[in-house]
């Protein structure tokens, strides 16, 4: 029997099972490994209430590793999903979730909070996160308003241009802030390059909520994203309501990026490189690309976080440095090999 194109585009159950297994194995490994290596038996017992060989293991696992690895996995999934969606929507392999400039806007908000000492009453440490979120949404509104003012169809080239210019403007403002930041420079650096140190279950829950609220609508746009990736004019001709789809994808991706930056800072490269690697391996059909990017992003960021906290232990590298280093090398290898073997 011939497979319909519709069925062929989907992620097969076998592939989904394989990726789920890989994701779980990585999760367990990342909980077990780090500055203190905890035997797998102790990880199991600590999680399921058994005896552990050292009591400190239990608190490391429950209060340090589990929330951190959960946040890393969820952020990896969110960043990669947004990158894949934006690359399809804008038909631009160089786009990612931060193309609109929302990520930079959020980082500026966090830096402002650090420099000016803005905090949330009753929750002193949440100032940067709250400001990042406010600035992320403010940036999104500003960018959409500018795009709307120029062309009510939200032409993709206008959106990309506005995003790039906005990012440059915000980077300049951030540089000014850094100049006057004094001893707060280190905190700002961690915000601008990302860190998952000290993450909590509450933050993991916020990320999960963001994935449900803004990630699910992205998954549901896979057919429309296929149409955009083939060509926006063609998408109009086959009946895609292009303006509604553009707004849905841009708002969902930006909101999700805003949430990620407010929790872990700007983590570069994940949203750009992971969808690329997945596309090279599995093709550009978004019915496969979106879920596979989410899976691969989860695994990638959990491993990058493990590297960030292990390589120079007890020192910790900003995770953005690790993602860029690993991502660039892995991408060059895969890209080189795939170009020799065929085109995706």
């Amino acid at each position: 029997m011939k497979n319909s194109p519709r069925k062929e585009g989907r992620l097969s159950p076998g592939s989904a099972a394989l990726w789920t297994g890989l994701m779980l194995a990585t999760f367990v490994a990342c909980v077990s490994l780090g500055s203190v290596n905890i035997p797998l038996r102790d990880v199991w017992n600590a999680v399921f209430g058994g005896e552990v060989s050292r009591e400190t293991y239990r608190s490391i696992i429950w209060w340090t590793r589990l929330p951190r690895v959960l946040c890393a996995g969820l952020m990896g999934a969110a960043l990669s999903l947004c990158g894949a969606a934006m690359q399809g929507l804008l038909r631009n392999p160089l786009a990612d979730g931060s193309t609109l400039g929302v990520s930079s806007g959020a980082a500026l908000g966090a830096a402002l909070s650090i420099v000016l000492g803005i905090s949330v009453p009753g929750l002193e440490s949440a100032g940067p996160a709250a400001m990042a979120m406010i600035f992320a949404f403010g940036s999104l509104l500003m960018i959409l308003a500018l795009a709307w003012g120029i062309d009510r169809s939200f032409a993709t080239h206008n959106i990309i241009l506005i995003g790039v210019v906005f990012t440059m403007l915000v980077s300049a403002l951030l540089s000014i802030l850094i100049t006057f930041s004094g001893e707060k420079l280190r905190s700002i650096t961690y915000w601008t390059m990302g860190s998952l140190s000290g993450k909590s279950y509450e933050q993991a829950a916020v990320l999960l909520g963001g994935m449900i609220l803004f990630g699910l609508p992205l998954f549901l746009q896979s057919r429309e994203l296929n149409a955009f990736a083939v060509g926006e004019e063609n998408a109009v001709h086959i009946g895609v309501p292009v303006r509604r789809v553009k707004l849905t994808v841009m708002i969902c991706a930006s909101a999700l990026i805003g949430i990620c930056v407010s929790i872990g800072g700007s983590i570069a490269f994940v949203g750009l490189i992971v969808p690329h690697m997945v596309r090279l391996a599995a093709g550009p059909n978004h019915r496969r690309l979106l879920p596979l990017s989410a899976f691969a992003g989860t695994v990638f960021l959990m491993l990058a976080d493990l590297a960030a906290r292990s390589i120079l232990s007890p020192l910790e590298l900003p995770i953005g440095v690790v993602t860029s280093l690993i991502g660039a090398v892995v991408f060059i290898v895969i890209f080189y090999r795939s170009r020799k073997g065929g085109i995706r």
Partner: peptide, 16 residues
């Protein structure tokens, strides 16, 4: 820009 297969692009005609 992206390497869709011929049948994937043709199948998009059924979108509406």
């Amino acid at each position: 820009v992206y390497g869709f297969t011929v049948e994937e692009v043709v199948g998009l005609g059924r979108y509406a």
